[in-house]
Design a protein around this nucleic acid. Structure first.
Lengths: 193, 193
DNA sequence: CCCTATAGGGTACGTCCAGTACCCTATAGG
DNA sequence: CCTATAGGGTACTGGACGTACCCTATAGGG
Protein backbone atom coordinates (compact mmCIF):
# COMPACT_ATOMS: atom_id res chain seq x y z
CA UNK A 1 0.00 0.00 0.00
CA UNK A 2 1.07 3.55 -0.65
CA UNK A 3 1.58 5.22 2.66
CA UNK A 4 4.21 7.75 1.83
CA UNK A 5 2.94 10.57 -0.33
CA UNK A 6 5.15 12.16 -2.94
CA UNK A 7 5.30 14.86 -5.55
CA UNK A 8 2.04 16.44 -6.55
CA UNK A 9 -0.02 14.71 -3.91
CA UNK A 10 2.19 15.89 -1.07
CA UNK A 11 2.43 19.36 -2.53
CA UNK A 12 -1.34 19.68 -2.57
CA UNK A 13 -1.56 18.43 0.99
CA UNK A 14 0.89 21.10 2.10
CA UNK A 15 -0.91 23.85 0.23
CA UNK A 16 -4.20 22.71 1.65
CA UNK A 17 -2.83 22.73 5.18
CA UNK A 18 -1.29 26.15 4.67
CA UNK A 19 -4.55 27.51 3.34
CA UNK A 20 -6.36 26.20 6.41
CA UNK A 21 -3.85 27.88 8.65
CA UNK A 22 -4.25 31.12 6.76
CA UNK A 23 -7.99 30.93 7.15
CA UNK A 24 -7.83 30.23 10.87
CA UNK A 25 -4.93 32.34 12.01
CA UNK A 26 -4.14 34.74 9.21
CA UNK A 27 -0.74 35.07 7.65
CA UNK A 28 0.92 36.37 10.78
CA UNK A 29 -0.25 33.30 12.67
CA UNK A 30 0.72 30.77 10.05
CA UNK A 31 3.85 29.02 11.27
CA UNK A 32 5.88 26.54 9.30
CA UNK A 33 5.81 23.96 12.07
CA UNK A 34 2.05 24.04 12.29
CA UNK A 35 1.63 23.78 8.53
CA UNK A 36 3.97 20.82 8.44
CA UNK A 37 2.20 19.10 11.31
CA UNK A 38 -1.19 19.73 9.80
CA UNK A 39 -0.10 18.34 6.46
CA UNK A 40 1.29 15.31 8.24
CA UNK A 41 4.80 15.97 7.04
CA UNK A 42 7.79 18.01 8.10
CA UNK A 43 9.45 21.26 7.23
CA UNK A 44 11.96 19.67 4.89
CA UNK A 45 9.28 18.85 2.41
CA UNK A 46 8.10 22.45 2.55
CA UNK A 47 11.46 24.14 2.23
CA UNK A 48 12.31 21.88 -0.67
CA UNK A 49 9.46 23.56 -2.54
CA UNK A 50 9.28 27.13 -1.30
CA UNK A 51 12.19 29.24 -0.18
CA UNK A 52 10.41 31.21 2.56
CA UNK A 53 7.30 31.38 4.59
CA UNK A 54 6.12 34.27 2.45
CA UNK A 55 6.35 32.24 -0.74
CA UNK A 56 4.31 29.47 0.79
CA UNK A 57 1.74 31.94 2.06
CA UNK A 58 1.29 33.45 -1.35
CA UNK A 59 1.13 30.06 -3.04
CA UNK A 60 -1.46 28.91 -0.54
CA UNK A 61 -3.60 31.98 -0.93
CA UNK A 62 -5.10 30.86 -4.23
CA UNK A 63 -6.52 27.84 -2.43
CA UNK A 64 -8.64 30.22 -0.43
CA UNK A 65 -10.17 32.20 -3.19
CA UNK A 66 -12.33 30.74 -5.86
CA UNK A 67 -11.77 34.15 -7.44
CA UNK A 68 -15.14 34.54 -9.07
CA UNK A 69 -14.56 37.56 -11.26
CA UNK A 70 -17.81 39.48 -11.44
CA UNK A 71 -18.72 41.16 -14.65
CA UNK A 72 -21.84 43.10 -13.78
CA UNK A 73 -24.14 44.37 -16.45
CA UNK A 74 -26.67 46.70 -14.89
CA UNK A 75 -27.11 48.74 -18.03
CA UNK A 76 -25.53 51.92 -16.72
CA UNK A 77 -21.92 52.74 -16.08
CA UNK A 78 -22.80 54.05 -12.64
CA UNK A 79 -24.54 50.81 -11.72
CA UNK A 80 -21.72 48.64 -13.02
CA UNK A 81 -19.04 50.65 -11.29
CA UNK A 82 -20.83 50.65 -7.97
CA UNK A 83 -21.44 46.95 -8.24
CA UNK A 84 -17.78 46.25 -8.89
CA UNK A 85 -16.67 48.46 -6.04
CA UNK A 86 -19.12 46.81 -3.67
CA UNK A 87 -17.93 43.41 -4.74
CA UNK A 88 -14.32 44.38 -4.17
CA UNK A 89 -15.13 45.94 -0.83
CA UNK A 90 -16.88 42.80 0.30
CA UNK A 91 -13.99 40.61 -0.71
CA UNK A 92 -11.44 42.82 0.94
CA UNK A 93 -13.35 43.12 4.18
CA UNK A 94 -14.02 39.40 4.42
CA UNK A 95 -11.67 37.03 6.24
CA UNK A 96 -10.06 36.41 2.85
CA UNK A 97 -9.35 40.08 2.64
CA UNK A 98 -7.67 40.08 6.01
CA UNK A 99 -5.39 37.31 4.85
CA UNK A 100 -4.75 39.14 1.63
CA UNK A 101 -3.83 42.32 3.43
CA UNK A 102 -1.51 40.40 5.72
CA UNK A 103 0.23 38.88 2.75
CA UNK A 104 0.46 42.20 1.03
CA UNK A 105 2.05 43.69 4.11
CA UNK A 106 4.56 40.87 4.28
CA UNK A 107 5.45 41.28 0.63
CA UNK A 108 5.52 45.05 0.78
CA UNK A 109 9.28 45.43 0.72
CA UNK A 110 9.99 42.68 -1.76
CA UNK A 111 9.10 43.56 -5.36
CA UNK A 112 9.48 39.95 -6.45
CA UNK A 113 6.88 38.77 -3.99
CA UNK A 114 4.63 41.66 -4.89
CA UNK A 115 4.61 40.59 -8.51
CA UNK A 116 3.70 37.09 -7.43
CA UNK A 117 0.92 38.55 -5.32
CA UNK A 118 -0.51 40.54 -8.16
CA UNK A 119 -0.72 37.44 -10.30
CA UNK A 120 -2.12 35.21 -7.64
CA UNK A 121 -4.61 37.69 -6.25
CA UNK A 122 -6.04 38.45 -9.67
CA UNK A 123 -5.41 42.16 -9.35
CA UNK A 124 -4.51 42.46 -13.01
CA UNK A 125 -7.67 40.62 -14.00
CA UNK A 126 -9.71 43.06 -11.96
CA UNK A 127 -8.01 45.97 -13.68
CA UNK A 128 -8.84 44.52 -17.07
CA UNK A 129 -12.45 44.02 -16.05
CA UNK A 130 -12.73 47.72 -15.26
CA UNK A 131 -11.37 48.68 -18.62
CA UNK A 132 -13.73 46.27 -20.34
CA UNK A 133 -16.65 47.76 -18.50
CA UNK A 134 -15.69 51.23 -19.56
CA UNK A 135 -15.23 50.16 -23.15
CA UNK A 136 -18.70 48.67 -23.23
CA UNK A 137 -20.12 51.93 -21.90
CA UNK A 138 -18.28 53.76 -24.65
CA UNK A 139 -19.54 51.28 -27.27
CA UNK A 140 -23.13 51.92 -26.34
CA UNK A 141 -22.51 55.65 -26.47
CA UNK A 142 -22.92 56.31 -22.77
CA UNK A 143 -19.52 57.94 -22.48
CA UNK A 144 -17.10 59.52 -24.93
CA UNK A 145 -14.71 57.06 -26.57
CA UNK A 146 -11.78 59.03 -25.17
CA UNK A 147 -12.84 57.94 -21.69
CA UNK A 148 -11.80 54.33 -22.26
CA UNK A 149 -8.31 54.74 -20.93
CA UNK A 150 -6.58 52.28 -18.66
CA UNK A 151 -5.74 54.75 -15.94
CA UNK A 152 -9.18 56.25 -16.00
CA UNK A 153 -10.81 52.86 -15.79
CA UNK A 154 -8.79 51.72 -12.81
CA UNK A 155 -9.09 54.94 -10.85
CA UNK A 156 -12.01 53.81 -8.66
CA UNK A 157 -10.47 50.51 -7.65
CA UNK A 158 -7.14 52.21 -7.02
CA UNK A 159 -8.86 54.70 -4.76
CA UNK A 160 -10.48 51.89 -2.87
CA UNK A 161 -7.15 50.13 -2.49
CA UNK A 162 -5.57 53.29 -1.19
CA UNK A 163 -8.44 53.70 1.25
CA UNK A 164 -7.69 50.27 2.66
CA UNK A 165 -3.99 50.91 2.77
CA UNK A 166 -4.46 54.18 4.63
CA UNK A 167 -7.04 53.09 7.14
CA UNK A 168 -6.54 49.35 7.49
CA UNK A 169 -10.14 49.05 8.47
CA UNK A 170 -12.50 46.14 8.69
CA UNK A 171 -14.52 47.62 5.85
CA UNK A 172 -14.99 50.81 3.89
CA UNK A 173 -18.47 52.33 4.34
CA UNK A 174 -20.77 52.27 1.38
CA UNK A 175 -20.99 56.06 1.29
CA UNK A 176 -17.34 56.18 0.39
CA UNK A 177 -17.94 53.88 -2.57
CA UNK A 178 -20.81 56.05 -3.75
CA UNK A 179 -18.65 59.12 -3.34
CA UNK A 180 -15.85 57.61 -5.36
CA UNK A 181 -18.25 56.89 -8.18
CA UNK A 182 -20.32 60.08 -8.09
CA UNK A 183 -17.71 62.65 -7.15
CA UNK A 184 -14.74 61.23 -8.97
CA UNK A 185 -15.38 58.51 -11.51
CA UNK A 186 -18.42 59.88 -13.32
CA UNK A 187 -17.19 63.49 -13.46
CA UNK A 188 -13.86 62.17 -14.69
CA UNK A 189 -15.44 60.20 -17.50
CA UNK A 190 -17.60 63.17 -18.35
CA UNK A 191 -14.57 65.46 -18.40
CA UNK A 192 -12.91 63.47 -21.12
CA UNK A 193 -15.00 64.68 -24.06
CA UNK B 1 28.74 65.31 37.50
CA UNK B 2 25.63 64.07 35.81
CA UNK B 3 26.42 60.74 34.30
CA UNK B 4 23.05 59.06 34.37
CA UNK B 5 20.56 60.53 31.95
CA UNK B 6 16.87 60.73 32.80
CA UNK B 7 13.51 61.72 31.46
CA UNK B 8 13.49 63.88 28.39
CA UNK B 9 17.19 63.64 27.77
CA UNK B 10 17.19 59.86 27.78
CA UNK B 11 14.05 59.73 25.70
CA UNK B 12 15.63 61.85 23.02
CA UNK B 13 18.73 59.69 23.05
CA UNK B 14 16.60 56.60 22.49
CA UNK B 15 14.63 58.18 19.70
CA UNK B 16 17.79 59.39 18.10
CA UNK B 17 19.34 55.92 18.25
CA UNK B 18 16.18 54.34 16.89
CA UNK B 19 16.08 56.82 14.03
CA UNK B 20 19.68 55.97 13.18
CA UNK B 21 18.85 52.29 13.13
CA UNK B 22 15.89 52.96 10.90
CA UNK B 23 18.05 54.89 8.53
CA UNK B 24 20.72 52.24 8.38
CA UNK B 25 18.75 49.01 8.50
CA UNK B 26 15.16 49.93 7.84
CA UNK B 27 12.35 49.04 10.16
CA UNK B 28 12.73 45.31 9.62
CA UNK B 29 16.34 45.51 10.74
CA UNK B 30 15.77 47.72 13.76
CA UNK B 31 16.11 45.54 16.83
CA UNK B 32 15.42 46.61 20.36
CA UNK B 33 18.77 45.39 21.60
CA UNK B 34 20.64 47.39 19.03
CA UNK B 35 18.66 50.52 19.72
CA UNK B 36 19.29 50.13 23.44
CA UNK B 37 22.99 49.55 22.91
CA UNK B 38 23.27 52.46 20.54
CA UNK B 39 21.51 54.76 22.95
CA UNK B 40 23.83 53.57 25.69
CA UNK B 41 21.01 52.22 27.78
CA UNK B 42 18.97 49.03 28.02
CA UNK B 43 15.62 47.71 26.92
CA UNK B 44 13.93 48.49 30.21
CA UNK B 45 14.17 52.17 29.56
CA UNK B 46 12.61 51.65 26.16
CA UNK B 47 9.77 49.40 27.20
CA UNK B 48 8.92 51.76 30.01
CA UNK B 49 8.08 54.31 27.31
CA UNK B 50 6.77 52.37 24.32
CA UNK B 51 4.78 49.17 24.45
CA UNK B 52 6.13 47.54 21.28
CA UNK B 53 8.79 47.79 18.72
CA UNK B 54 6.25 49.16 16.28
CA UNK B 55 5.37 52.05 18.57
CA UNK B 56 9.02 52.97 18.93
CA UNK B 57 9.51 52.73 15.19
CA UNK B 58 6.68 55.08 14.50
CA UNK B 59 7.77 57.49 17.21
CA UNK B 60 11.29 57.51 15.84
CA UNK B 61 10.19 58.08 12.29
CA UNK B 62 9.56 61.77 12.83
CA UNK B 63 13.21 62.18 13.73
CA UNK B 64 14.04 61.17 10.18
CA UNK B 65 11.85 63.56 8.33
CA UNK B 66 12.17 67.26 8.57
CA UNK B 67 8.77 67.10 6.88
CA UNK B 68 9.10 70.22 4.80
CA UNK B 69 5.58 70.54 3.46
CA UNK B 70 5.86 72.06 0.03
CA UNK B 71 3.23 74.47 -1.13
CA UNK B 72 4.12 75.07 -4.72
CA UNK B 73 2.78 78.04 -6.58
CA UNK B 74 3.58 77.70 -10.24
CA UNK B 75 0.57 79.68 -11.36
CA UNK B 76 -1.28 76.79 -12.98
CA UNK B 77 -3.09 73.90 -11.40
CA UNK B 78 -1.27 71.48 -13.65
CA UNK B 79 2.11 72.80 -12.59
CA UNK B 80 1.22 72.76 -8.92
CA UNK B 81 -0.18 69.26 -9.06
CA UNK B 82 2.80 67.88 -10.91
CA UNK B 83 5.13 69.57 -8.51
CA UNK B 84 3.39 68.07 -5.51
CA UNK B 85 3.35 64.61 -7.04
CA UNK B 86 7.00 64.83 -7.89
CA UNK B 87 7.82 65.97 -4.40
CA UNK B 88 5.85 63.07 -2.94
CA UNK B 89 7.43 60.60 -5.33
CA UNK B 90 10.86 61.77 -4.38
CA UNK B 91 10.16 61.46 -0.69
CA UNK B 92 8.63 58.02 -1.03
CA UNK B 93 11.40 56.65 -3.17
CA UNK B 94 14.14 58.00 -0.95
CA UNK B 95 15.59 55.97 1.89
CA UNK B 96 13.05 57.72 4.11
CA UNK B 97 10.33 56.30 1.96
CA UNK B 98 11.68 52.80 2.30
CA UNK B 99 11.51 53.15 6.04
CA UNK B 100 8.05 54.63 5.79
CA UNK B 101 6.82 51.76 3.66
CA UNK B 102 8.30 49.26 6.08
CA UNK B 103 6.51 50.91 8.95
CA UNK B 104 3.29 51.05 7.03
CA UNK B 105 3.56 47.35 6.29
CA UNK B 106 4.19 46.60 9.95
CA UNK B 107 1.19 48.66 10.98
CA UNK B 108 -1.03 47.34 8.23
CA UNK B 109 -3.09 45.05 10.38
CA UNK B 110 -3.36 47.31 13.38
CA UNK B 111 -5.74 50.24 12.91
CA UNK B 112 -4.44 51.93 16.03
CA UNK B 113 -0.91 52.01 14.71
CA UNK B 114 -2.15 53.13 11.33
CA UNK B 115 -3.80 56.14 12.87
CA UNK B 116 -0.57 56.95 14.65
CA UNK B 117 1.23 56.61 11.34
CA UNK B 118 -1.08 58.97 9.56
CA UNK B 119 -0.47 61.61 12.17
CA UNK B 120 3.27 61.17 12.34
CA UNK B 121 3.84 60.86 8.63
CA UNK B 122 1.88 64.01 7.89
CA UNK B 123 -0.46 62.25 5.48
CA UNK B 124 -3.38 64.35 6.62
CA UNK B 125 -1.37 67.52 6.18
CA UNK B 126 -0.56 66.48 2.65
CA UNK B 127 -4.22 65.86 1.94
CA UNK B 128 -5.09 69.31 3.21
CA UNK B 129 -2.41 70.87 1.06
CA UNK B 130 -3.99 69.32 -2.03
CA UNK B 131 -7.36 70.70 -1.12
CA UNK B 132 -5.88 74.12 -0.49
CA UNK B 133 -4.17 74.05 -3.85
CA UNK B 134 -7.41 73.21 -5.58
CA UNK B 135 -9.27 75.92 -3.73
CA UNK B 136 -6.74 78.50 -4.82
CA UNK B 137 -7.19 77.38 -8.41
CA UNK B 138 -10.92 77.78 -8.00
CA UNK B 139 -10.49 81.21 -6.43
CA UNK B 140 -8.53 82.50 -9.38
CA UNK B 141 -11.18 81.07 -11.72
CA UNK B 142 -9.02 78.40 -13.26
CA UNK B 143 -11.46 75.64 -12.36
CA UNK B 144 -15.13 75.53 -11.44
CA UNK B 145 -15.86 76.05 -7.75
CA UNK B 146 -17.56 72.67 -7.63
CA UNK B 147 -14.19 71.05 -8.23
CA UNK B 148 -12.88 71.95 -4.80
CA UNK B 149 -13.98 68.74 -3.16
CA UNK B 150 -11.88 66.77 -0.72
CA UNK B 151 -12.05 63.50 -2.58
CA UNK B 152 -11.31 65.16 -5.88
CA UNK B 153 -8.34 67.00 -4.46
CA UNK B 154 -6.75 63.92 -2.95
CA UNK B 155 -7.28 61.68 -5.96
CA UNK B 156 -3.81 62.15 -7.47
CA UNK B 157 -1.93 61.48 -4.25
CA UNK B 158 -4.17 58.50 -3.52
CA UNK B 159 -3.39 57.09 -6.95
CA UNK B 160 0.29 57.53 -6.30
CA UNK B 161 -0.03 55.78 -2.96
CA UNK B 162 -1.86 52.91 -4.57
CA UNK B 163 0.82 52.70 -7.22
CA UNK B 164 3.43 52.24 -4.52
CA UNK B 165 1.33 49.75 -2.65
CA UNK B 166 0.80 47.67 -5.76
CA UNK B 167 4.28 47.69 -7.13
CA UNK B 168 6.53 48.26 -4.13
CA UNK B 169 9.03 49.86 -6.40
CA UNK B 170 12.11 51.88 -5.85
CA UNK B 171 10.38 54.76 -7.62
CA UNK B 172 7.43 55.54 -9.82
CA UNK B 173 8.48 56.83 -13.26
CA UNK B 174 7.73 60.43 -14.06
CA UNK B 175 5.49 59.48 -16.99
CA UNK B 176 3.09 57.92 -14.55
CA UNK B 177 2.89 61.16 -12.60
CA UNK B 178 2.22 63.10 -15.77
CA UNK B 179 -0.41 60.60 -16.76
CA UNK B 180 -2.14 60.86 -13.41
CA UNK B 181 -2.34 64.60 -13.82
CA UNK B 182 -3.21 64.82 -17.51
CA UNK B 183 -5.40 61.77 -17.94
CA UNK B 184 -7.14 61.78 -14.62
CA UNK B 185 -6.81 64.86 -12.46
CA UNK B 186 -7.33 67.61 -15.02
CA UNK B 187 -10.18 65.87 -16.88
CA UNK B 188 -11.78 65.18 -13.52
CA UNK B 189 -11.60 68.81 -12.46
CA UNK B 190 -12.91 69.84 -15.85
CA UNK B 191 -15.77 67.37 -15.62
CA UNK B 192 -17.12 68.99 -12.49
CA UNK B 193 -18.69 72.04 -14.05
C1' DC C 1 13.04 -8.81 -10.42
C1' DC C 2 16.49 -6.42 -8.02
C1' DC C 3 19.16 -1.83 -7.15
C1' DT C 4 19.96 2.59 -6.52
C1' DA C 5 19.09 7.53 -6.76
C1' DT C 6 15.75 10.54 -4.96
C1' DA C 7 12.38 12.41 -2.09
C1' DG C 8 10.03 11.96 2.58
C1' DG C 9 10.09 11.56 7.47
C1' DG C 10 11.90 12.38 12.18
C1' DT C 11 14.28 15.13 14.97
C1' DA C 12 17.32 18.07 16.85
C1' DC C 13 19.64 22.29 16.45
C1' DG C 14 21.49 27.20 15.69
C1' DT C 15 20.10 31.73 15.69
C1' DC C 16 17.65 35.70 16.33
C1' DC C 17 14.66 38.59 18.66
C1' DA C 18 10.65 40.35 21.37
C1' DG C 19 9.31 40.97 25.69
C1' DT C 20 9.87 40.08 30.93
C1' DA C 21 11.94 39.60 35.52
C1' DC C 22 15.13 40.88 39.13
C1' DC C 23 18.13 43.23 41.51
C1' DC C 24 21.34 46.86 42.26
C1' DT C 25 22.35 52.01 42.06
C1' DA C 26 22.24 56.94 41.02
C1' DT C 27 19.71 61.04 41.90
C1' DA C 28 15.89 64.36 42.20
C1' DG C 29 13.18 66.60 45.25
C1' DG C 30 11.24 66.97 49.58
C1' DC D 1 19.96 63.94 54.70
C1' DC D 2 16.42 60.31 52.99
C1' DT D 3 13.64 57.93 50.16
C1' DA D 4 10.82 57.00 46.14
C1' DT D 5 11.60 56.65 41.39
C1' DA D 6 13.86 55.91 37.20
C1' DG D 7 18.15 53.80 35.01
C1' DG D 8 21.45 50.20 34.33
C1' DG D 9 23.02 45.35 34.00
C1' DT D 10 21.96 40.98 32.96
C1' DA D 11 19.85 36.88 32.36
C1' DC D 12 16.04 34.29 30.73
C1' DT D 13 11.65 32.55 28.38
C1' DG D 14 9.37 31.47 24.46
C1' DG D 15 8.48 31.41 19.76
C1' DA D 16 9.71 30.91 15.17
C1' DC D 17 12.53 30.62 10.92
C1' DG D 18 15.63 28.10 8.60
C1' DT D 19 19.22 24.15 8.44
C1' DA D 20 21.63 19.74 9.17
C1' DC D 21 21.75 14.83 9.52
C1' DC D 22 20.45 10.48 9.20
C1' DC D 23 17.28 6.87 8.28
C1' DT D 24 13.68 4.79 5.07
C1' DA D 25 10.21 4.08 1.48
C1' DT D 26 9.71 3.75 -3.34
C1' DA D 27 9.82 4.83 -8.24
C1' DG D 28 11.85 3.68 -12.30
C1' DG D 29 15.57 1.81 -14.85
C1' DG D 30 18.65 -2.07 -16.05
Amino acid sequence: MNTRRRGEELEQAILHAAADELRESGYAGMTMDRVAARAGTNKNAIYRRWPHRAALGIAAYRHLSDAAMPNPDTGTLRGDALEMLRQANETWSSPHGTVLRGLLAAAADDPELLTLMRERSGADTVDRAWLGMLERAAARGEVPAAAAHHRVATTPIMLLRAEYAMRGIPSVPDEVLVEIVDEVFLPLVRGRG
